[in-house]
Design a protein around this nucleic acid. Structure first.
Lengths: 126, 126
DNA sequence: ATTTCTGCAAATAATTTGCAGCGTT
DNA sequence: AACGCTGCAAATTATTTGCAGAAAT
């Protein structure tokens, strides 16, 4: 696991996440690719999503079923309690937020902000 | 499922989470209670944790393995990438944070802030 | 040639659920 | 008596892993 080699599958997985605005799960990425790439395997999707996240090319989001985001620039996420969809919320990274954690002696690599509630669409529709 | 009735198990589960500072998982709560309550079942622990969270008596935290917090008052959490422990970070609920999500038409019930990094103890020890 | 990466399938981990009987009201 | 809650165990879902062969360098 020292040198990274090119792989078609990894490239496809990466592009799929980047092209999606759904903050897809591993299953969603798999389902999107499977039709055109019938021998892609789910294990490969998991392995590459985690690898890409470790490398900082994708961002892994804190949900009970893991989700990934191709937009690495700082922003937060909203999760609707009705439809379950995850959507972006603009917002610069606020280093001020980290102050309280640093004050406790922790080294903060990053933080995640997640909003929960009823999304605009479900509000209108229901 | 209309009327709520008292149950010894629920009470024990609730008190266990409240008394803990570990932000315990279902397994942790189960392990803590099992010795003194040998016929407690894990399913009951899961059911009651979720029920208590729905009622607002506990707070469910956004980690891949679900964790619960008996301290309902606003504060955030730090998760150490080495030891995996979750600890409290003081901090009032900042309604300003919700502004961006509201601007998109979402109804925000609450938000969670989670810090990731190296905790004070692991910094010292490693 | 070497070593990473893949597909497959089985293993593991986490959570949920059906059901018969117990406990609370 | 009515019905919510429990224990048990099986089912489901999510994720990880071992391995033999294919692909990249």
């Amino acid at each position: 696991m020292a040198v990274r080699r090119y792989s078609r599958q990894r490239e496809l997985i990466y592009q799929t996440v980047r092209a999606s605005s759904a903050h897809p799960t591993a299953e969603m990425v798999y389902a999107a690719l499977k039709p055109d790439h019938p021998n892609l395997s789910l294990g490969t999707v998991y392995r590459n999503l985690h690898l890409l996240a470790r490398e900082g090319k994708l961002r892994q989001l804190p949900f009970p079923v893991e989700r990934f985001d191709g937009m690495v620039a700082p922003h937060s996420h909203f999760c609707c309690r009705v439809c379950g969809q995850v959507s972006d919320v603009a917002g610069a990274y606020d280093p001020e937020l980290d102050r309280a954690a640093r004050a406790l002696g922790h080294q903060v690599d990053r933080h995640e902000v997640v909003y929960y509630g009823l999304c605009a669409r479900c509000r209108a529709g229901g």
